[in-house]
Every structure is written in structure tokens, then in C-alpha cells.
Amino acid sequence: MPDSNQHIIPVIRMDGEEYFRQVFNSHYSNLCKYAFTIVRDMDEAEDIVQSMFLKMLEKNESLKMVNDVKAYLYRAVHNYCMNKIDYLATRRLYQQERILENANNVQYPEVFPTELEDSIRAAIDKLPGQCRTIFIMSRYQEMRYSEIAAKLGLSVNTIENQISKALKILRADLSDIIKEY
């Protein structure tokens, strides 16, 4: 292999910067939206995505985004988010244990956020038993699918099905209410 290094100078800052800007522009918003779904707070999500981009620059990692930039970014954001919620989850655990002691009781009146309007509360209350329990655990207790599955002794697949079912029912039930928004 010919030694071509002698003709090569280290990356010219402008080109790197331009490229970085391009990558940033095309992915920032979507990465934040994705991060939000995991951490459920847009300030947090933006912080995560920004610090990922900064870290990348510091470590000169922008260069390594040669092959599949998009996949790389999404993976990085996912990792950051998971670290974040792992921390939150530990903090939450205690609180959940307490709620789950009553897991067999059908009513969870205290789990609804106070802001919820009666109509929406009613729609959620109307969900079929297990579906309702699982939805509440996911939405209001912010448990991961795997956590819910473990607690209820069900498969993750069942949890997925139930959440998707709940969402479809709510879409239908709430369609009148939502129009007023």
C-alpha cells in the first residue's frame, strides 16, 4: 500500500464544522423527540441531545460518523437516555413498591394526575381490566414494559399488545373530546 499520509493534512476545521452543522440540522429535532419519549421531559431531552453532540465534538467522534451517521446518533441518544432513566428508576422504585402492594386492587384513584379532566379519566377507567392496569403503570407510574411484565408476571409482548390496545381505544373514545382542544 502506498504511503499516502505524507500528502495528507489533518482535518480542515471548516469542512468538519460544515459537516457537523449539516448533521446537527438534519437530526437534532427528531433526536430530541425520540429522547423525549424515553425521558418524558423536553428540557431533559434537549440537554441530552446537546451534550451528546458536544461530547462527540470533544472526542473528535464526528469523524467516525462516516458509515451510518443516523444509526450512530440514535444509538448514542438511546444510551444517554437509558442511563438517565436508570437513575430515575432507582429513585422511583421505592414509590412503586408501595403502590404495587395494592396491585390486585382494581382501583388506582390516586395514580391519576390531578390535572386530568373527568371525561379523560372516565375513558381510561373504562378500559378493560388488565389493559387499564397496564396502561396506568406505563403512563402514570412511568414503568418500563419490562418492569411491568416482571411485576405482573406477564410477557413483554403482552404488555406491548395491551398498551397498543389501550391507545386505540382511547383514540376512539377521546376523539370527540379531543376535537375541542
Partner: peptide, 23 residues
Amino acid sequence: LEIAWNASFPSRTPRDPNIDEAW
């Protein structure tokens, strides 16, 4: 679907990311 999802917890409806500020 997203609207139904957000309606079930209105205060957790995300605002849009602010790309200019971030940049």
C-alpha cells in the same frame, strides 16, 4: 394516536425542540 396519548397526560405533552437555541 399521539393526541390520544398526550390527552391521557396533558402536562406531559412535549413542546417542540428549539433547534436555533440549541445551535
